[in-house]
């Protein structure tokens, strides 16, 4: 899922314009699961804004299934029309979709979107995928070197791997290639690491420009 966190309330208040009617809009999918922008967070955010020293007339809270999907905007057309500005608690994709759909309406992002990751425990998420467009997890035992190695090396581990940890943060950051090594050992596939991996084709990643996915087979 997409993992995001709320911007500090001070930053949000600074960004908010002093309008008559403000809509705080949550998103019930990824950011609800990562406790950043769901229904509950919308309620808390509304209270915080009401209590703040800010000349905002009315603060309304609402939440929809997904802000990254046009079909869910229909139900809020009326409430958006009533509002002067929207504070979106969705990921960056949601904020942009919302801005496109309600063009002319000021949308302020309330979250910082971080990564595609996993839920590792209470309040703990970990980046797992860069969305590079060219998956090689079969070779590396299901651990992504581009994501988990601090340098994104394809032929690791580098000389900075010590006791399974990465030199950039030996207390908190595991060496991705050490994890790959241990995993491949268990799979009896260490030979995979002996192959010199060639340079990546970054045109399949973001470096090729904003990516589009168009499935011909499901076009009307």
């Amino acid at each position: 899922m997409i993992v995001a966190e709320q911007k500090p309330i001070g930053e949000i208040l600074k960004k908010l314009p002093e309008v008559e009617k403000l809509l705080v809009l949550g998103c019930d999918t990824c950011v609800t699961v990562c406790l950043a922008g769901g229904e509950k967070e919308v309620k808390v955010m509304c209270s915080a804004i009401r209590m703040a020293d800010k000349k905002i007339g009315e603060v309304t809270g609402f939440s929809i299934e997904r802000q990254c999907d046009r079909e869910f905007f229909k139900e809020i057309e009326a409430v958006v029309k009533e509002s002067d500005a929207i504070l979106s608690l969705a990921c960056g994709a949601g904020v942009q979709m919302l801005s496109d759909y309600f063009e002319g309406k000021l949308v302020i992002p309330g979250l910082n979107t971080h990564f595609i990751g996993s839920n590792e425990g209470a309040g703990y998420w970990l980046e797992r995928c860069l969305g590079c467009g060219d998956c090689m997890l079969d070779i590396t035992g299901g651990i992504c070197p581009k994501t988990r190695c601090s340098k994104g090396l394809m032929n690791g581990p580098c000389g900075g791997s010590e006791n399974g940890m990465c030199e950039i943060d030996p207390l908190n950051t595991e060496c991705g290639w050490y994890l790959i090594y241990e995993r491949l050992k268990k799979l009896n596939m260490l030979q995979n690491m002996m192959t010199n991996q060639p340079p990546r084709d970054w045109s399949r990643a973001h470096d090729g420009g904003p990516r589009k996915l168009l499935r011909e087979d499901i076009q009307p």
């Binding site: 581990p157 000389g159 010590e162 050490y178 090594y181 002996m194």
Partner: peptide, 19 residues
């Protein structure tokens, strides 16, 4: 190129040289 005989995993270091 460089080689580090002392980094972890220790048993992988000669393999890395070979690569």
């Amino acid at each position: 190129a460089a080689a580090n005989p002392f980094a972890d995993p220790l048993e992988w270091r000669v393999n890395r040289l070979e690569k």
